Simulated assay, not measured.
Amino acid sequence: MAAAIFHVLGAHAPYGTYDCTGSGAVRSWADIARAVFESANGNGERVVPVSTADYYANAEGPVAPRPVHSALDLSGLESVGFHMPDWEEELGE
């Protein structure tokens, strides 16, 4: 993330919002957690996906709405010449 920030500043990129996340395949939060658990402890099968509705089913009071699809768009960073590494390759390292 720091490298992306310094690149945007050094390139005098246009003012705006630049999403910053690993590139590569878009996965659900459960898929990402499963990959992290598998890489760290070899127990990725223990991650159980939970829908947003189920997660907040017993919440008291208002709940902030969650997007159905929350993938970030790296085209802003790429337009100023910065390419984020693939998150799955980085996780392996």
Rank of each mutant, 00 (worst) to 15 (best):
F37Y: 08
A59F: 08
A64W: 13
E90N: 11
G22H: 02
R27C: 14
S79A: 10
T52E: 14
A53M: 07
V50T: 07
S75T: 12
V36E: 14
V63M: 11
T17A: 14
S39C: 10
A13Q: 05
G16D: 00
D86L: 02
E38G: 14
E78A: 12
A40L: 15
S39I: 07
A33N: 14
A11W: 02
Y55K: 11
P14C: 03
G76C: 05
L91T: 04
V50L: 13
A35I: 06
V26D: 00
L9M: 15
G42C: 09
P14G: 09
W87F: 05
G44D: 10
E88N: 02
V63T: 12
V80A: 01
I5Y: 11
V26K: 12
H7T: 06
A3F: 01
D54V: 07
N41Y: 09
V26R: 04
A3L: 12
G92A: 05
A71N: 10
V47E: 01
L77A: 00
Y55E: 11
V48N: 12
S23R: 02
V26I: 10
D31M: 06
E88D: 03
Y55Q: 11
V63Q: 15
F82S: 07
W29A: 14
I5P: 00
G16S: 03
T21I: 00
S51K: 04
V47I: 12
L9V: 12
E45I: 07
F82T: 01
A11L: 02
A4S: 01
D73F: 07
D31E: 11
G42V: 02
S75Q: 12
S51N: 09
A25N: 00
S28P: 04
G10M: 15
A64D: 13
V8R: 10
D54T: 04
A53T: 08
G16L: 02
N41S: 10
D73C: 05
A3W: 03
A71R: 03
P85I: 08
G42H: 06
D86H: 04
A40I: 07
F6W: 09
H69D: 13
M1T: 12
G44R: 00
G10A: 04
A40C: 14
P14H: 10
E89H: 05
A64T: 08
S70R: 07
S75L: 08
D31G: 11
A2Y: 14
D19K: 03
Y55T: 08
G24M: 04
T17Q: 15
S28M: 03
T17V: 09
V36I: 13
L91K: 11
L9C: 13
I32N: 07
I32D: 10
Y56W: 15
V36K: 13
P85T: 08
P62Y: 09
R46E: 07
S79V: 08
S70N: 09
E78V: 01
V48W: 08
S51H: 11
A35G: 00
H12R: 09
A33V: 02
T21P: 01
Y55N: 13
R27Q: 13
S79D: 08
P65L: 02
V48R: 14
E60M: 04
L91D: 10
G16K: 01
C20Q: 04
L77I: 00
G16V: 01
S79L: 03
G24P: 01
L91W: 10
V80Y: 03
T21F: 03
G76Q: 06
W29C: 08
S39L: 10
E45G: 09
S28T: 15
